[in-house]
C-alpha cells in the first residue's frame, strides 16, 4: 500500500485521533493523539491492508531546547513500523508533556516493545502504562536521572556503586 494511502486510511478511520501527517522523501509520518495511540497501533497491526507485523524501533526525542518547540510538548515517542507481507513502512509519533509523561504500552501488540520501552524509560524518563516490568534497561538501578534528557548535565558524576552480592 502506498504511504499516502496509509495516511488517508488512518485519517479516515480515526479522524481527530490523527493530529497531523506529512511525508518527507517517501517517509510517511503520522502524529497521533496520546489517547488514540493504542487503538492506532492495534489497527496498524491487524488491518489486512496494513499488516504492520514488525515494530522496527521505538524511541523518543527531547525537544526541550529545540528552536520553535520550547513551549510545545516536550517529548515525542516515535514508533517505526514495517510490514513484511506488504513491504511498506510507517512512522507514528506521540507528543507528551513533561508532567505526567505516560504513554500506553505496546507490549501486548509487539513483545519487542518490552525492551524498547524500558530503554525509553531509562534514557528519557517516559513511563509506559501497562508495561509488565518497567525497569531500567541499560543503566543500573542506583543511577540518578535520565541521561538523554537535554537538561541532564553533561559533566554530571554519578556516585560509584559498590559490589553486589
Amino acid at each position: 500500500m502506498d504511504g499516502q494511502a496509509i495516511l488517508l486510511r488512518l485519517t479516515a478511520t480515526f479522524g481527530s485521533g490523527i493530529v497531523e501527517s506529512h511525508d518527507h522523501r517517501g517517509d510517511h509520518t503520522a502524529v497521533v493523539e496520546r489517547s488514540a495511540i493504542r487503538d492506532v497501533l492495534a489497527f496498524c497491526r491487524d488491518d489486512p491492508d496494513l499488516r504492520f507485523d514488525v515494530l522496527m524501533d521505538l524511541t523518543a526525542l527531547d525537544y526541550l531546547k529545540y528552536p520553535g518547540r520550547e513551549f510545545g510538548p516536550r517529548f515525542e515517542v516515535v514508533y517505526h513500523l514495517y510490514s513484511l507481507p506488504h513491504n511498506h513502512r510507517l512512522r507514528l509519533k506521540v507528543r507528551v508533556d513533561d508532567e505526567g509523561a505516560v504513554v500506553p504500552s505496546a507490549v501486548s501488540l509487539w513483545p519487542i516493545a518490552n525492551w524498547f520501552e524500558r530503554e525509553v524509560w531509562d534514557m528519557f524518563g517516559i513511563r509506559f502504562d501497562g508495561h509488565p516490568d518497567l525497569r531500567r534497561l541499560l543503566m543500573y538501578e542506583e543511577f540518578q536521572g535520565h541521561p538523554l534528557r537535554k537538561d541532564y548535565p553533561v559533566n554530571k558524576r554519578q556516585p560509584l556503586i559498590g559490589p553486589k552480592n
Binding site: 556503586i161 559498590g162 559490589p163
Partner: peptide, 13 residues
C-alpha cells in the same frame, strides 16, 4: 563503565 565497576572491584578483592 559504572555498571561494570562493581565487577572490577570484586575481581580485585
Amino acid at each position: 563503565s559504572h555498571k561494570l565497576a562493581p565487577a572490577l572491584k570484586r575481581v580485585y578483592d
